[in-house]
Every structure is written in structure tokens, then in C-alpha cells.
Simulated scan of single mutants.
Amino acid sequence: MTDSVTAKGRAADKRRRLTAAAARVLHEQGVERTTLGDIARAAGVPVGNVYYYFKTKDQLVQAALSEHSAHLDALTATLGRLPDPRERLTAMVEGWIAARDVAARYGCPTGTLAVELDKRADGTLDAEAGAVLRRLIDWAARQFRALGLPDPDGLAVTFVAAYQGMSLLANALRDPEIMTREGTRLLHWLDSLHAPDPAP
């Protein structure tokens, strides 16, 4: 292996570590309270090296949003192995319930970031955060459509809105059991949905 290949591998690893750290630290601290130094420390990278990969904090925010999008893609790909769309939706909710302690402490990673970025007067990062949420809505709509349910797009918005609402309340009230209770209610709602009988 040549030195240049080794150096490229190390550089790619540092960038991956910084991107993962940005997603985690921005979720925990928010954009305004997070410094490049915070992210460098979380990634185990010298702070001076951060500027080699990311010139501004906004570039790190973009990297964090890409990390959220990649995580969503990996999750939905895993759920896609389940044979039934209702099982996929159920598994998604069960995952949200399992992450109740994190939600109660920090809120939804993408939702909280979208709200914070929307308050800024500059840039289009809020639209990028919204695009990640749109991907989740579109995925849910495909599941409802596969179940033959009417208004799959509307059902998908209801599904994701329920998650955002319970995450927000769990975080605001510091009560993870809100995720458990409302997640269970969401599971019952999913079970109650049935495609209409075909016309005779």
C-alpha cells in the first residue's frame, strides 16, 4: 500500500469521524451552542484539522444533515427486508419507542435541527433539514400505499407528525414515557387501518 493511499484512507476516516460527531453534538447541544472545537473533541481530531475538511460551521451542519439522511436510508433499507409494509411501519415506531430516553433528553435529531435552522435569517439549511423529514414522509407514504389504504400521503404526514409531536413533548417535559404511551397509541392506530373492501 502506498503512502498516498494510506493518507487518503486516514483523511476519509477523519472526515467520517467529524461528520458522525457533528450529527451527535449538534443534536445534543444545538447549532448555536456548538463550536468547531466541540466537534473536533468529540471526533478525537485536532481542532486545527477541522478546517481542512470543513471551512465553516454551516458546512458541518450540512454534513450532519447528510449523516441523518444516510442513517434514515440505512434504517429504511433494513426495514425493507420485512415482508409486510405494516410490519415496516410498526418496526419504525418500535425503534422510536426504544430511543425514548434520547428523545426525552434531546428531541428528534432532524426535527430539532430543522426548527433551530428555521430561526436563522441566512442560508437554506432549514430546507435541507426539511428534505430529510420529507424523505421519511415519502417512505411512510409508500408503505401506506402498498397496504392499499386511501390517502397514503395524508396518512404518512399523520404518522410522522405523531413522531415529531411525541418527541417534542417528551423533550419539553423530560418524560420518556410520553414516547412509550404515544408510540403505543400510534401502534394501535396502525393496527386499526384496513384497506376498503373492493366494490362488488
Rank of each mutant, 00 (worst) to 15 (best):
G111N: 06
T158N: 09
W189G: 04
L117Y: 02
V31S: 03
R15K: 13
F159N: 10
A104L: 06
I97W: 06
R105V: 04
I137A: 13
V132Y: 08
L187A: 03
V132M: 06
A99P: 00
G80N: 09
G111M: 09
D118R: 14
D101A: 11
E182M: 14
A74N: 07
H71V: 13
E28T: 03
L173N: 07
G9M: 13
L186R: 06
R181T: 11
L173C: 08
L117G: 01
G30E: 12
L187M: 03
L117F: 03
H194W: 01
T124V: 04
L149S: 07
Q143V: 02
L117Q: 01
R33I: 00
H194R: 02
T184C: 01
G111P: 05
T2F: 10
H68V: 02
A91H: 04
Q29A: 10
V50Q: 00
Q29E: 06
K57G: 11
Y163V: 15
Q62W: 09
R185K: 15
L65T: 00
D3V: 12
G9C: 05
G44Q: 06
T180Y: 06
E32N: 05
V115S: 11
A99N: 11
A74Y: 03
P200G: 10
R41E: 12
Y52R: 00
A121L: 13
A129E: 03
A11C: 01
D3L: 14
E67A: 15
S69N: 13
R33T: 08
A146L: 10
T110D: 05
R10A: 14
G80T: 05
T90V: 11
T124I: 01
Q164Y: 05
W189C: 05
E116Q: 12
T90M: 01
D126F: 07
A131L: 07
A127Q: 14
F159Y: 15
R81D: 15
V102H: 15
A170R: 06
A91V: 03
Q62K: 11
Y106V: 11
S69R: 15
A70N: 12
F144E: 07
L26Q: 00
L169R: 08
L155N: 02
V61W: 05
G107W: 15
A162H: 10
G130C: 06
T78D: 15
V25Y: 12
V25S: 07
P152N: 02
A140P: 03
